[in-house]
Nucleic acid binder design. Structure first.
Lengths: 107, 107
DNA sequence: GCTGTATATTGCTGAATAGTCATATAGCGA
DNA sequence: TCGCTATATGACTATTCAGCAATATACAGC
């Protein structure tokens, strides 16, 4: 593990370490959307959403395509959902264990 | 995707969004290590490393076990390396594409 | 050209946090 | 008990960044 690779991987995780961006990715799961549609889907305001989209694009998570006045964003990296599923799975497993400890606290 | 799940998943990614913590996890890949050994392996100072370990532990990435004066940390979640491999793969794929664009710039 | 709409960018502020130093706690042996 | 070592925690600083408001840019129609 070279220091640069650590940096790059950490940077990639950092992009995903933000609920708003996960929400955007989730909104893109069904297909391309333009910015206004994403604003509505996520509730983010225009400037904020635009910045998140810039970051997602800069890191290769989404691609963009202009059509007239609209800019369509689309998922560019299928591995995102694998990552999220793994993270979700771990989160849920922890919640489950916590619930079980609460149900029958053996300590 | 409920807001809380988004928060939880983002929080989990945030733990991994730090080169120092990835380095710690990497150092634990071969088996349990106590704090002093991790200091040497990572070059982090004691206070800083201890904080990173607290965070890794709080999020369930590692488990801890006391043996006399020493505290041994151990990986508690195998999915970490799957996550990292995916992220590494994406990073490398991007580097590869960038290199190819540089080698034969068709624009 | 001008006007309106969609998106991007800039500047700012508040909140979170990595790193460091100093200090505190935990466990061992004498 | 005391002294020593290993680890944890508190206080502080500097940096990063999400969110917001205002402004700028890109494009279409006239």
């Amino acid at each position: 593990m070279t220091p640069e690779l650590l940096e790059d991987v950490a940077a990639r995780f950092k992009v995903l370490a933000e609920p708003a961006r996960l929400q955007v990715l989730d909104a893109l799961a069904d297909g391309p959307r333009h910015v206004s549609a994403l604003m509505e889907a996520t509730g983010l305001n225009q400037a904020n959403l635009s910045k998140h989209l810039q970051m997602l694009h800069a890191h290769g998570f989404v691609s963009r395509r202009r059509e007239g006045l609209f800019v369509y964003y689309e998922l560019a990296d299928d591995s995102v959902f694998t990552l999220c599923d793994l993270a979700c799975g771990a989160v849920e497993a922890r919640a489950q264990r916590a619930a079980e400890r609460h149900a029958r606290p053996r300590r």
